[in-house]
Amino acid sequence: MQTPLPPLVDAAIAPDRLAAVRLEGATVGYDAGPDVLVGATMDLKPGATAIVTGASGAGKSTLLHLIRTALAPREGRVTLLGSDIARLSNASRAGLKRRIGYAAQEPQFLEDETLFDNVALPLNLDPTSRQTGQDVMDLLGFLGLTRDAGRSAGALSTGQRKRAALARALVARPDIVLADDPLAGVGAEAEPKVVRLLMELGRLGAAVIVAASGPVRGLPGAVWRIREGRLELAPESVMKPLDPAR
């Protein structure tokens, strides 16, 4: 029997939650270093899923950093949820960040604090959040982390940390979900659950971008490739509308 999805994800998305990522010729790099991505162009509609593939060091994580507004484009434009990130004030950018859920490849936690507190952090930082501690527990339960909720983050295994990072990224019901290699190290049992969560978020209207070394089994979506700093849609990729009954 399939584990029921937590109500957090089953809840209806408000009509004004329009998630969209638009890159227009975005070139990006780190500090004074060379360009990592050159002229990246992507248009992701609300509810769409993009799987970005490429060799190690190709720039997949850099693309996610660009979209989570940690990096500014050297050239081109990045528009998130209708806002050009280069024109945002710091306060507006903070507000935008609260609508983006990001699960890093090697996630950072407050190591001395409990898993529950770490996952609930986005809710505590957003005074307008409607999610509660029960939502956190539901999500942890779905990802098989209920028993670890009271443990300090520093005591978690690599796989648990990856799942916890995903829970933290999703708990505030973001409009844009960025997951950097979310299946690596989570364990065979948790893999389908992670995929199912990402699919559900897409179905409910969030734009989902997953960086992975190859296609993610069971996760439908457009496959993009990064080669020699260029982001391109894979020829075999076909955007398929998701089955709303799923």
Partner: peptide, 16 residues
């Protein structure tokens, strides 16, 4: 610093 970094990443304002 980790706390400040996490808070910044998760959208906390500088003032808060």
């Amino acid at each position: 610093r980790t706390r400040a970094t996490l808070w910044a990443d998760l959208g906390a304002t500088r003032a808060a």
